[in-house]
């Protein structure tokens, strides 16, 4: 008897809560760690990136206006739904990153726990970073962090799932929305994460995931006037490879609209290649959440 032929999945973009192909009609071949063909992924265009920014902007009012408690519940729900797809993620990660099954499972464990970690920060970050300021006068004076807006995220190139979650979760935990360029060569775990987000009470448009060529899309996002912040984590190349992205140039492009920039780790200047950090290390507090928040200070007089 002939073996059953499996039905293969089309890996698409995740924009505004939907799964479109690239409007450009382009795709590119994704291989496993040994170079064998796995699937064709959509190659996002400048128009796709702009559409994604529109979707993220449209989702911002609702997401930033939700209570921190509600956002925490939603992030925790993402962890719950990921847990149910644990095996699928482990398979994708093993294939993309060339890990053993056991190591891939550990990566998925850590990625799920990372959502839980940031779920817990949603309603605590204001308590840790906010302050009642004792100004020298009859005024009530309170500083609180508020989400910055739309964040463009270059997801890490090597750590296709744990690295991705480690940069996306803090953005949405703080109440911002984002457009994410997935790992260029290891994009498929990001697409599966999109499928989880679509079924986890995360409103459409809060997280938008683009697959494609980082060096092509990143400049459009860096210079986009409606992008408020830029995370350059994905500017670090895969280990042993040359950088395809000049993060200094992206930061300079972002300067036009004073877009906030989180620089990649591991190099003194952008002339040296950045180095991707070890994402299994637990984050050092809410630094990444606060990187995408503004401090608002409110004054109010006191008097009879």
């Amino acid at each position: 008897m002939a073996a059953r032929l499996d039905v293969r999945k089309t890996y698409k973009l995740y924009v505004g809560g939907k799964f479109p192909r690239s409007e450009s009609g382009r795709s590119y071949e994704v291989t496993d760690a040994k170079g064998r063909f796995v699937a064709n992924a959509a190659m996002a265009s400048r128009k796709d990136a702009r559409d994604a920014v529109l979707a993220a902007r449209a989702a911002f009012a609702g997401w930033s206006g939700a209570t921190a408690y509600n956002r925490g519940q939603v992030l925790y729900r993402v962890a719950e739904v990921m847990e149910g797809r644990h095996a699928q993620f482990a398979e994708e990660v093993a294939r993309a990153e060339g890990l053993t099954a056991a190591k891939a499972r550990a990566v998925v464990d850590a990625a799920i726990d990372r959502w839980v970690w940031y779920a817990g920060w949603t309603d605590k970050v204001a308590q840790v970073a906010g302050a009642a300021n004792p100004v020298a006068g009859p005024y009530f004076n309170l500083s609180v962090p508020e989400p910055t807006g739309v964040v463009a995220v270059l997801a890490p190139q090597a750590s296709s799932l744990l690295g991705l979650v480690s940069v996306v979760a803090p953005v949405v935990a703080g109440g911002s929305t984002c457009v994410v360029l997935a790992s260029e060569r290891r994009p498929l775990p990001a697409v599966v994460l999109g499928e989880v987000l679509a079924t986890s009470d995360v409103p459409g448009g809060v997280v938008n995931l683009l697959t494609g060529v980082t060096a092509e899309s990143a400049p459009w996002l860096a210079s986009h006037e409606d992008v408020d912040a830029l995370d350059l984590a994905g500017a670090a190349p895969l280990p042993g490879e040359d950088a395809t992205v000049d993060w200094g140039a992206l930061e300079a492009a972002a300067a036009a609209t004073l877009t906030r920039v989180v620089r990649p780790a591991g190099s003194a200047t952008s002339e040296e290649p950045a180095v991707e950090p070890d994402w299994t290390v637990l984050p050092d507090g809410p630094r990444r959440v606060l990187a995408f928040m503004e401090t608002k200070t409110v004054w109010h007089p006191k008097g009879r």
Partner: peptide, 9 residues
């Protein structure tokens, strides 16, 4: 829910 998040923070 709130205190769950504090446990490791």
């Amino acid at each position: 829910f709130y205190h769950a998040g504090w446990a490791d923070k």
